[in-house]
């Protein structure tokens, strides 16, 4: 699937609405961090970046997409349903008894590769997958989506060092750089400074992009994927936590804030 920029924007808007609707029904889900990553996932799945097959989620010929920022990927629920990984009706049962769509996604969900609830594991596992794919001569790619706050976990940097050492140019790290973790701005907690400079110093090729410009994200991802120059690659997507929701957007405590149902209703009405 390779949508035009206009269609991608429309799809991103639909996902934004559906994510709000899921959260309206299931307020246990983390909304703010799921709104910052929408355009990243829309570009990956609708922008001709990932090779995937909803009828065979773990088919050998797929590109691997590891979603490390588990909490902040509730927007994947409507995307996976829309693509046919499971019926759209499942979106109405999120967090309910018998549903497989929980407050934090688990690998029982078709389309999820790994365990995501505990942060800081995705980059390492994705790096192992990239090594495995290289070893068996596969040209498939591995994408891993991480938050910037999650990069405080030191195990990420063990994998980041390893990936450049082993020239894993089939590995793509996308950082949803919303600059907020649970208790505030990451710059006030443990600042990454420039992630691009930091990752470049670790031997990665880096691109930066406005993470809410879905066409720009798509273009950057397609360029990255094509580039196999012996280095792992990172895309730093500058995003806003709580994107598009007044009071939530870029609020330091947005991770643990739930907008009132009336606000969600009004946003959905005003933004058809």
């Amino acid at each position: 699937m390779n949508m035009s920029p206009i269609d991608l924007r429309e799809k991103a808007h639909w996902v934004w609405r559906e994510t709000l609707a899921v959260h309206r029904r299931a307020p246990e889900t983390r909304l703010a961090s799921s709104l910052s990553s929408i355009e990243i996932f829309v570009a990956l799945y609708y922008g001709g970046v990932l090779r995937f097959d909803p009828t065979q989620p773990l088919a050998e010929h797929r590109d691997r997409c590891v979603i490390s920022k588990g909490h902040g990927s509730i927007c994947m629920y409507p995307i996976l349903a829309d693509l046919g990984y499971f019926p759209l009706d499942e979106l109405k049962r999120v967090c309910q008894t018998g549903s497989f769509l929980g407050g934090i996604p688990d690998p029982v969900i078709p389309g999820y590769e790994t365990v995501n609830g505990s942060l800081g594991h995705g980059v390492g596992v994705a790096t192992g997958m990239a090594l495995g794919l290289k070893c068996k001569g596969s040209d498939r790619s591995v994408f891993v989506v991480s938050g910037d706050g999650e990069l405080h976990e030191g195990a990420n940097w063990e994998a980041i060092m390893f990936a450049s050492q082993h020239k894993l140019d089939n590995l793509h790290l996308i950082i949803d750089d919303n600059r907020i973790s649970m208790l505030g701005y990451t710059d006030d907690i443990v600042s990454h400074g420039s992630l691009s400079a930091r990752l470049s110093a670790f031997g990665w090729d880096c691109l930066e992009v406005d993470g809410h410009d879905v066409a720009a994200v798509q273009a950057a991802l397609l360029k990255m994927k094509k580039n196999r120059a012996g280095k792992p690659k990172a895309l730093i997507a500058r995003t806003l936590k709580g994107h598009g929701v007044p009071g939530l957007e870029n609020a330091p405590l947005s991770h643990i804030m739930n907008p009132k149902p009336e606000l969600i209703d009004s946003l959905l009405e005003q933004n058809p």
């Binding site: 590769e113 596992v125 195990a155 063990e158 390893f162």
Partner: peptide
């Protein structure tokens, strides 16, 4: 993997998934 047991496990998991 070097002196990096956390990475040892996650790299191993990724290889096993492949």
């Amino acid at each position: 993997v070097g002196i990096a047991e956390q990475n040892l496990i996650n790299i191993s998991a990724g290889l096993a998934l492949e």
